[in-house]
Design a protein around this nucleic acid. Structure first.
Lengths: 216, 216
DNA sequence: TGTACATCAGTGAACGCGCGTTCACTGATGTAC
DNA sequence: TGTACATCAGTGAACGCGCGTTCACTGATGTAC
């Protein structure tokens, strides 16, 4: 029910769980866990491979048996986070009827929750995305996740999923939850003394930008 | 008409222009300029005081005559950028009639333009704002700038400027332009193959979230 | 106007630091016979 | 089942690097008389 990033957790290809008691157990996974923790602790820009290795109880050279270099580790963490977020989005919309506005709202809320629960990871995924700009794997993963939103919007509006208006309105929703996520983790809502009922606002947005298209 | 950050430019308290031919001329200002350029060139997280000093043609110790430490320099750059952005916002809305929706749209467009023209600075201002979270000067400056938006929304909706609904709808607009700005400078719109007419979208948002409140 | 002095912006050398990465190594595991 | 060998995950020491910051200094500027 929650976006668990800090648990013992398995890595992307879901088959690494076993083989414990090897050399280290499963260093790759534990390194990614260590990085996630560090990124939350010290911020995405202050994390170092050395410290992640220390946290995983291993020499500073060990990570290079599993990753090419530092950017490769970051990329793995980002890809992992995006995948988990996508899975969570599919999960939270399921209880609501196919084609309902509630599904759309649930997706938006899920995105915001992810940012609030893992602000460091969120910053890493988006704040530094210039670095892996153009990366094929990440782009593909992003498309897949955003595709969930497009689909939900298309279903609600009774449009074919490739209709440009579905993508357009899905993007508007994205900008909104994305902006709100940033402003929340930046503490801007507190700084501006804004008292906002997030659910109400989210509904107002999907009503104003999406539901309004149903009544011509 | 444009958000000039890289020009010779004067510093915040608008009185430093003269006194050239002192020791260095006006190192403080030129350091801030150097930092701005570097932040755009190498990214907000890769900038160093040493390089800024080199760029300003000065020893690496010189900056410490003008700033306490690195965070203080960053703060000065952020404060400067926010102030300029605020000034620009006031400028772009002026041609449009008081209380018109066009004023609101102009403010939104101005925000997005700022991000697109200075993505490095934008990242610095928002992507790292955890660091100066709680800083009084920055908070005050942020309030002032956001106040411009609240006021424009209040005027359009015929509300007193302190009416909570004005702040609420202003915040919705902010989340939207903020999210769109991030997604643009992250290259997500390209990655998702989204063809979006920004002006149209901005109007759709202000129509759907603000103008809709005028017809009960 | 000229001199003596105080100020303070900028110098350059030095420091300790933690980092990313490489390297030859060792020793546990897996495998072929 | 036992032995010989190949593999390869992790070691620990070392490297060069650029950084933030400090320090005693110097020399140009401003000021009092």
């Amino acid at each position: 029910m929650d976006h668990t990033l800090n648990a013992d957790s398995s890595s992307l290809p879901k088959k690494v769980t076993a083989k414990a008691g090897y050399h280290h157990g499963d260093l790759r996974t534990q390194l990614l866990n260590a990085v996630r923790l560090l990124v939350e602790e010290k911020g995405a820009e202050n994390f170092s491979i050395a410290e992640a290795a220390r946290k995983a109880g291993v020499s500073t050279a060990a990570p290079y048996r599993h990753f090419e270099d530092k950017p490769a580790i970051l990329k793995a963490v980002v890809l992992d986070a995006m995948t988990r977020n996508g899975e969570e989005m599919r999960r939270v919309m399921q209880p609501f009827p196919f084609g309902s506005i509630e599904r759309i709202n649930a997706l938006g809320q899920c995105y915001i929750d992810f940012a609030r629960q893992h602000p460091g990871i969120f910053r890493l995924v988006f704040g530094f995305s210039e670095k892996h700009d153009g990366d094929e794997d990440l782009t593909a993963c992003g498309r897949e996740v955003f595709g969930i939103v497009i689909e939900a919007v298309a279903n609600y509006l009774d449009l074919p999923p490739n209709h440009p208006m579905a993508a357009e309105r899905a993007y508007m929703l994205w900008t909104f939850v994305h902006g709100h996520s940033w402003l929340i983790i930046d503490g801007k809502t507190k700084a501006q003394d804004l008292q906002i009922d997030e659910g109400v606002m989210l509904s107002a947005v999907s009503d104003g930008l999406i539901a309004s298209l149903r009544q011509p």
